[in-house]
């Protein structure tokens, strides 16, 4: 495996960057690297050249389990018929405050 020295031989990593304290990590992109430490260093060079981040996570892309776009509607359907989960569902008399 390592005899083929092309970068694509290396696993793909997803990069998440926290832009500043108080915000959550957000997906920034992906890159190839031989191991987690190199992935972190490459992510620093690639995604934070202009102080875009104060913290980076790298995750092997192969470890991400994603919902299928084909089942998008049935998968998310359970939330569609529960409007009572939203505050706007409830009628409150005029003049009632702080509610």
């Amino acid at each position: 495996m390592s005899t083929d020295a092309n970068g694509s031989d290396w696993p793909l990593w997803e990069v998440f960057v926290r832009s500043r304290r108080g915000l959550s990590h957000t997906h920034a992109g992906s890159l190839h690297a031989p191991d987690a430490q190199m992935a972190l260093r490459n992510a620093r060079d690639l995604y934070t050249r202009r102080s875009e981040g104060v913290s980076i996570w790298v995750v092997p892309s192969a470890s991400v389990t994603a919902s299928s776009p084909d089942e998008k509607d049935p998968f998310f359907e359970p939330s569609a018929d529960k409007p009572y989960r939203h505050p706007t569902f409830y009628d409150i008399p005029e003049g009632v405050r702080h509610l």
Partner: peptide, 13 residues
Amino acid sequence: AAAYAAKHGEARS
């Protein structure tokens, strides 16, 4: 880099 990663047993896809 690949040899180092293999030696240290990092996750590889």
